[in-house]
Every structure is written in C-alpha cells, then in structure tokens.
Simulated assay, not measured.
Amino acid sequence: MTVLGIGLDLVTVSDFAEQVERSGTTMLAEAFTSGERRYCEGKAADRIRSYAARWAAKEAVLKAWASSRYARRPQVGDDPYQLIEVVNDAWGRPRIKLHGVAAEFLPRATVHLSLTHDGDTAAAVVVLEDPGEG
C-alpha cells in the first residue's frame, strides 16, 4: 500500500459561524450536500461545530489530493466542495464519499478520515491510500 497524500485542516468554529451568518444559507447550500446538511441540522446544539468539522474534512481532502499531485497540474476544478461528502455509518463513524471528477481521479484510493471538535476548534485529518494491486 502506498500513501498518495495527507491533508490536515483546522477550523475556528466561531469564525466559521460568522462566515455562515454573513452568507446566510447560501454557503451551506453551495458547500454541503443535502445529506450533510440534514445530518448537521439534526445536531441542534452542535450544528455549527458539525458543519465546521465537515468543512475541515473537505479542506483536508483537497490538501491530500493536491499533495498527491505535487509537480503535476491540479485536477480539482473551481467548485470542488460538492464533490467531497462526509457520510456517517449507522454508528456515527464518518467517512468520505467522492463524486464526479473526484471519484474519477481517485477511483481506487481509500480515503481515511478522522474528525474532531473541542471548544471553538474543529479539525480533520485525511490520508489518501492506494491499496495497490490485489
């Protein structure tokens, strides 16, 4: 197995909340899938922290993707956020689901994800792994 890229992102939840308030629901609709919005809206007390952690995950995927393309032309495009979706299993464990060009570019890659939030901080770490021949 080969690591293709690593990404880390850290979000200040209060700054993220201000950004959401400035743009209204437009930012949430443009950056998050309907499934992500449904999940976060169901987290009443932690709504913004849930969005912030998912934003960090999307950014971490983009950083891992970019690091996998070092010294080569980027393949992300202008509006990649809807291509990267954080989904949860029945036990609440998050994972990344890729769509469109992201899924085409990384068809065999395993995307490892870790999310956290504490106080006014949310963070995500992503490792892109090529499982190799098998």
Results as ranks from 00 to 15, higher is better:
residue 61 V to H: 02
residue 113 L to K: 05
residue 76 V to H: 12
residue 47 R to L: 13
residue 93 R to A: 12
residue 72 R to T: 14
residue 132 G to M: 04
residue 98 L to D: 10
residue 68 S to L: 02
residue 59 E to A: 04
residue 53 A to Q: 06
residue 7 G to P: 05
residue 24 G to T: 12
residue 73 R to H: 11
residue 130 D to N: 15
residue 80 P to W: 13
residue 6 I to Q: 07
residue 5 G to A: 11
residue 71 A to S: 06
residue 94 P to M: 08
residue 131 P to D: 07
residue 51 Y to A: 09
residue 127 V to N: 04
residue 55 W to N: 02
residue 54 R to V: 03
residue 111 V to Q: 06
residue 31 A to K: 06
residue 112 H to G: 03
residue 27 M to C: 08
residue 76 V to A: 15
residue 39 Y to W: 15
residue 79 D to W: 11
residue 105 F to V: 10
residue 64 A to H: 09
residue 89 D to A: 05
residue 59 E to G: 03
residue 53 A to L: 09
residue 28 L to C: 08
residue 46 D to V: 03
residue 16 F to D: 03
residue 52 A to Y: 08
residue 39 Y to G: 01
residue 121 T to N: 05
residue 106 L to R: 05
residue 124 A to H: 06
residue 118 D to E: 15
residue 12 T to C: 07
residue 37 R to V: 13
residue 66 A to M: 12
residue 50 S to N: 15
residue 25 T to W: 03
residue 10 L to H: 09
residue 115 L to F: 04
residue 83 L to F: 03
residue 56 A to T: 09
residue 90 A to Q: 10
residue 100 G to K: 10
residue 111 V to K: 01
residue 40 C to M: 12
residue 87 V to G: 00
residue 94 P to V: 09
residue 45 A to F: 00
residue 64 A to Q: 05
residue 115 L to G: 04
residue 23 S to W: 08
residue 5 G to P: 12
residue 50 S to T: 15
residue 52 A to E: 04
residue 106 L to F: 15
residue 133 E to V: 14
residue 124 A to P: 06
residue 32 F to D: 02
residue 56 A to R: 12
residue 106 L to V: 08
residue 26 T to Y: 01
residue 60 A to N: 05
residue 10 L to W: 01
residue 83 L to P: 00
residue 112 H to Y: 10
residue 103 A to E: 14
residue 6 I to F: 06
residue 57 A to H: 07
residue 114 S to Y: 12
residue 37 R to I: 15
residue 11 V to G: 01
residue 36 E to S: 09
residue 30 E to S: 12
residue 89 D to P: 01
residue 59 E to V: 07
residue 117 H to T: 04
residue 15 D to A: 15
residue 59 E to W: 05
residue 56 A to L: 04
residue 45 A to R: 13
residue 60 A to V: 09
residue 33 T to F: 06
residue 25 T to L: 11
residue 122 A to I: 04
residue 120 D to T: 07
residue 8 L to I: 15
residue 107 P to A: 09
residue 13 V to S: 02
residue 119 G to P: 04
residue 89 D to L: 04
